[in-house]
Simulated scan of single mutants.
Amino acid sequence: MSWKCKYCGSVEFIQKFTGYHNPIFDKNGEYIKYSYQERTYENITCEECGSSGKYIKEIAEWVEE
C-alpha cells in the first residue's frame, strides 16, 4: 500500500517546510524540549517527475498492493 504519482508512478515524495520553536535548556545547556512551535508547509512534490500540489491527493493515488 502506498501513494503513487498519477503522472509517473513514483512512490517518492518530498515536502519542504520552514519553522521555528522556542527551546528550553537545563543549567548545563542541554536541550530539554521546546515550548512553542510553528511550521509553514510548502507543496508536496514528486521526486521523480516534479509534479506538485498542496495535497497528496492532487498528484497521487493510493494503491493497495
Rank of each mutant, 00 (worst) to 15 (best):
E61M: 07
I44G: 00
A60T: 00
S10C: 04
K33T: 15
S51C: 10
Q37N: 06
W3C: 02
Y20N: 13
I44D: 01
K54Y: 05
I56G: 00
N43Y: 09
V63P: 01
Y55N: 03
E42F: 11
Y31C: 06
Y55R: 09
D26A: 12
N28Q: 15
D26H: 11
E47Y: 03
E38G: 06
W62G: 01
G19I: 13
Y7I: 00
K57G: 01
D26E: 13
K27H: 12
Q15H: 10
Q37F: 08
F17I: 06
T40S: 12
Y20P: 01
T18K: 15
Y34G: 02
C5L: 03
I14Y: 10
I59P: 00
F25R: 14
W3Y: 14
S10H: 02
E48Q: 08
E48G: 02
M1D: 14
I59D: 00
F25T: 11
C5T: 01
E38N: 13
P23S: 07
E65P: 05
Q15I: 13
T18E: 15
Y20C: 06
K16Q: 08
N43A: 09
E12M: 07
I59L: 00
K4N: 08
S52P: 02
G19L: 11
Q15N: 14
E42N: 13
T40W: 10
K16W: 11
I59Y: 00
K6N: 01
K33I: 08
I14N: 08
C5P: 00
I24F: 09
S35P: 03
H21Q: 13
E64N: 14
C46N: 01
R39N: 12
S10N: 05
C46E: 00
K4L: 04
W3F: 12
F13K: 03
K27M: 09
T45W: 02
E42V: 04
Y20I: 02
S10M: 03
Y41W: 15
E30H: 14
G29V: 12
E48N: 12
I14H: 10
Y41C: 02
E64D: 13
K4A: 06
V63R: 11
T45V: 12
K16E: 09
R39C: 05
T45K: 11
C46W: 00
N22K: 12
N28Y: 14
S10R: 03
I14E: 11
K27R: 13
T40I: 13
K54W: 06
S51N: 14
I44M: 04
Y41H: 13
E65K: 15
G53K: 01
C5M: 04
E64R: 13
I24N: 10
A60P: 00
E42H: 11
C46L: 04
T18N: 15
Y20A: 07
C8V: 03
V11W: 07
A60D: 01
E47L: 06
G50D: 03
E38R: 11
Y34W: 10
D26N: 15
C8G: 04
E12Y: 07
Y41T: 02
K4I: 06
E48L: 04
